[in-house]
Design a protein around this nucleic acid. Structure first.
Lengths: 345, 345
DNA sequence: TTGAAAGCGCTAACAT
DNA sequence: ATGTTAGCGCTTTCAA
């Protein structure tokens, strides 16, 4: 870890000199290529070790045309959703010895273009675009010299490849669980209708209910905001529309928190009287809830990982073509759901 | 944005050819150096523009010895605390046209060393180490060939430079505010005592109270966990020890949420009967609270920004020496604090 | 005012 | 088995 004995970062030239061989020989020894006397190879390696030599990646990249770097452009300011995605991506990329350039656009197209230019100038091998998915976004660029994969956001260009969570499936998952617990009058309080995620989750719920011969209680989904405050308001609206409610599926954990709080205050026990399912598995929120929240986990790490793997494949020349890949969600059962209480009704 | 007309990434050689000049001339034109006929310069620039030329940063870096990159090593898995720090850092660095390599260590020293090696091999100009600060951590390396600055974490090596939030000051801030609101019996529920942050916040509180002739109500700080659940438990302990409590300062917003919930249930109005101050300004938590939480903001963005600026200075050769710089906190007043209610007592 | 040439650190093809 | 050379893309002398 300490500075090299030379007092500067050693080059292969220093190694060669120390080992008393030519630069080419040193290179071969270090890379295990070509035919060398074992003794020579060992001498070179020893010299390298002693000097703390690490090959200059820039020089290697210049020569090979591969930099083993990718750019990660996020429009979510490294937010709650893009972080796990990034982590998953870093996982997959790190395994491939690839370093990641972080670029935050703050949702500003100008900044995005700027970052894109910078990344291309740095000759990244590929680009990952992540976001807080709302509606599909414009493609970051067609005909780019490197492959691009979208994660947790979608490009409007069908020739781009995007990886997103399966919101529809998530809605199904939550609903099946509630049905399995014997719940029949299930309400839905969720975010703004303009969010595709909100619509898809509601659709998944509706579909599962319909198959079982039910509908969303209270007259349909209550679209509102992604906030606790809306959860508090929404549940009162719901209770008014259908007082006999025995479960609520919420579009987010925050909404569920609000719902839980008011249900308590209205004297409804969770889960005995009313079961509650959230969405996001936002640890701090879900675990802090009283009782701890059963919720849908979007497997964001997996979203990032899959996106990164696709990017790696594309870099390796195995382009996967355009399209959208939806990663299945997963139900995390905690204490806010359970079988219908014998005392209920 | 589209691929160059050449069907590959253009080099300066292509630009020179297109403009009908030598490579050296093209370089001068592009960099505005040397003496060139204005017409020639224009011709080169036009060619570059037409080809979509962007100089290869690797080649520039190889030559100049400067890569205009820094490594950002985080042991917090891009967690809640390191993100804002990163954002602030990216801010300061981006302004300097510096790109950031993200490295997450998952708190594993092996991974950390690996990332460090990788960064050095990539010839970053400097390294920023961030973390979720608990106790000071071992230095990432002495005698490194590039400067290192610690943000939101501290090195045990006094010759390293660290930037952290001023927890002591944060504790003072919260306490002064509560005193100003006329509160006198102020309890303190906070995280584990092994956290320096918890101890410092308590110390700041104690000092301000002492100056005003008071002490922490209930017999001293209640150290516990950083969770809502602990907030719920802690406040009952506190109420038992000192039922006439008129304010609680919490070591985190999560704790404060738990405290708020139970205070409500015990029939204490916030802020009329009991004022409440949190710590972190964790937006979703603080705003979702009933009522919205007055809390201490650590200015994490500023922590990152200052750290990055110091790193830039060090890179530029203006080493700042070792030491610790504490960034002042800031009180964010919402609705959980207010003057003592006329009806109280 | 422009061009030619050297060299940053490295690898790979070719000589020896 | 080892050394020499060319060249990746660029900047910077130094010649012309």
């Amino acid at each position: 870890m300490s500075l090299s004995p030379l007092g500067r970062v050693p080059t292969i030239r220093d190694v060669a000199a120390a080992a008393g061989v030519s630069i080419g020989t040193a290179s071969k020894a270090l890379n295990g290529r070509g035919k060398l006397r074992p003794e020579t190879r060992e001498r070179v390696l020893a010299a390298a070790r002693q000097l703390g030599f690490r090959p200059n990646t820039l020089a290697q990249g210049l020569l090979s045309g591969r930099t083993y770097t990718v750019g990660l452009i996020t429009s979510d300011s490294f937010g709650r959703f893009s972080i796990p995605v990034m982590l998953g991506a870093e996982d997959a990329l790190g395994a491939g010895q690839i370093s990641v350039f972080m670029c935050d656009t703050r949702d500003d197209p100008i900044r995005e273009r700027h970052h894109l230019q910078t990344l291309l100038a740095r000759r990244v091998d590929g680009i990952l675009v992540t976001g807080r998915r709302t509606e599909p976004r414009p493609s970051i660029g067609t005909e780019l010299p490197v492959p691009v994969v979208y994660a947790m956001t979608q490009s409007t260009d069908p020739s781009d490849f995007s990886v997103i969570p399966d919101d529809f499936g998530g809605g199904q998952l939550a609903t099946r669980h509630l049905l399995a617990m014997g719940r029949r009058r299930i309400g839905h309080i969720t975010g703004p209708e303009r969010f595709q995620a909100a619509r898809l989750r509601a659709d998944g719920m509706r579909q599962v209910l319909a198959e079982a011969g039910y509908e969303i209680a209270g007259g349909g989904p209550l679209f509102g905001e992604w906030s606790e405050e809306w959860g508090r308001q929404g549940v009162d609206i719901l209770l008014r529309a259908e007082p006999r409610i025995d479960a609520v599926f919420c579009g987010s954990d925050q909404i569920a928190r609000g719902v839980a709080e008011i249900l308590r205050e209205r004297g409804r026990r969770i889960p005995d009287d009313v079961a509650l399912v959230g969405f996001d598995n936002w640890e701090a929120m879900a675990v802090g809830c009283r009782p701890p929240l059963t919720t849908v986990d979007m497997n964001l790490g997996e979203v990032g990982r899959v996106a990164a793997e696709h990017l790696l494949a594309a870099i390796a020349g195995n382009a996967s073509g355009g399209g959208v890949k939806a990663i299945p969600c997963q139900l995390v059962v905690r204490e806010s759901t359970g079988p219908v209480s014998p005392r209920a009704n």
